[in-house]
């Protein structure tokens, strides 16, 4: 079964899909994402393939249920891809050489453009779930792409607000936020010529960060070569700051937010990447619970300014080690 069901209260889609087939049996401890095991026949540098267990299908089945009254269902047309960052099983995105991350950005860009051009794809969402605490069962370094047939609700709400701000003030809301974070300075984690990372003023997770390009870009489609190089350095440094924080490979959700691909103009939109690590401390998880799930209001029991300093210090330690000091 695979279909979208409409929630008439929040006016948003819920995507339901059940997968009849279990993962093919593999020898114990073998990884289906390593070359020559299951999904990828040969050695590779970066690979993208269609998810074996997708939520959206290029050729979706008709919904199992008929729409009637309040109960509206639709077929779930879209694309779900898996992105393997490297064939090397034991590495993470943080471990990859900057040049390799640069190539990954080129691959992301290619996927954004190609999937976004499909007539039924309104939003290309590139993301990564990292770490067992997020529920990731395969430790091989990989991310995912969901090419949605609609603009997802959280993003849609934000876009409406950013669009309104742009229309009223003639200025990009994200550019304004970036300027304000730089002016305050306290929550900045790192900056270079092309990108700035901060723990946002309104962070929901203790170690949440937002990555902005300094230039007003809507998507990776518009990024220049030197900006992409700057982005690869930014990701490399930020991820290693995370890993240096408590001395272990830090779990996170990475979300890359780009312009919708619905054919409309979204000049008010500004590319950004958010990291949501599910940790409050080295060994304490931050799990959205009663308040967050039940009301949508996040409780953050830390000061973003203090967390930004921790991340700056962690980055400093990593840079010293890198530079052999």
């Amino acid at each position: 079964m695979s279909e979208m069901r409409w929630d008439p209260f929040l006016e948003e889609w819920v995507v339901s899909s059940t997968h009849r087939s279990e993962r093919p049996l593999l020898p114990e401890k073998s990884c289906p994402l390593c070359p020559g095991v299951l999904e990828v026949a040969k050695d590779y540098q970066i690979v993208v393939f269609e998810n074996r267990y997708p939520s959206f299908y290029r050729h979706p089945p008709m919904p199992d249920v008929e729409s009637r009254g309040l109960f509206k269902a639709a077929s779930s047309q879209g694309v779900c891809e898996v992105v393997l960052y490297t064939s090397q099983h034991d590495l993470s995105l943080a471990d990859l050489p900057q040049g390799h991350i640069f190539k990954l950005i080129e691959a992301w860009r290619d996927r954004y453009c190609e999937l976004g051009n499909l007539p039924y794809v309104d939003y290309v969402y590139i993301f990564e779930n990292k770490g067992e605490v997020i529920g990731v069962t395969l430790s091989h370094p990989h991310g995912q792409i969901y090419a949605f047939p609609f603009i997802p609700p959280k993003i849609s709400r934000e876009l409406a607000i950013a669009n309104h701000h742009f229309a009223r003030k003639g200025k990009c809301l994200y550019c304004s936020h970036l300027e304000a974070e730089i002016a305050d300075g306290e929550r900045i984690v790192l900056e270079n010529n092309f990108f700035v990372v901060s723990v946002p003023f309104f962070a929901r997770y203790p170690y949440e960060t937002r990555v902005y390009p300094r230039r007003h870009l809507g998507s990776l489609e518009e990024i220049s070569g030197e900006e992409a190089w700057g982005m690869s350095l930014t990701l490399k440094e930020l991820l290693n700051a995370y890993d240096s924080l408590f001395g272990y490979s830090f779990p996170y959700i990475m979300s890359i937010y780009q312009s919708p691909t619905d054919g409309a103009r979204h000049e008010y939109f500004h590319l950004h990447i958010d990291f949501y690590p599910p940790m409050r401390a080295a060994d304490k998880q931050k799990i959205p619970a009663g308040c967050e799930v039940g009301t949508g209001t996040f409780l953050n029991d830390t000061a973003p300014e203090a967390k930004a300093k921790e991340l700056r210090d962690a980055l400093h330690r990593w840079r010293e080690k890198r530079d052999g000091r």
């Binding site: 077929s75 976004g116 007539p119 039924y120 070569g225 691909t261 054919g263």
Partner: peptide
């Protein structure tokens, strides 16, 4: 295919879920 740095507008038809015309 485009290279990094190039940009283009690719207006396309807005489709709705269940629009069976949107084949690829």
């Amino acid at each position: 295919m485009q290279n990094i740095g190039e940009s283009s507008e690719s207006p396309k038809k807005k489709t709705e879920p269940n629009d069976t015309e949107s084949e690829d």
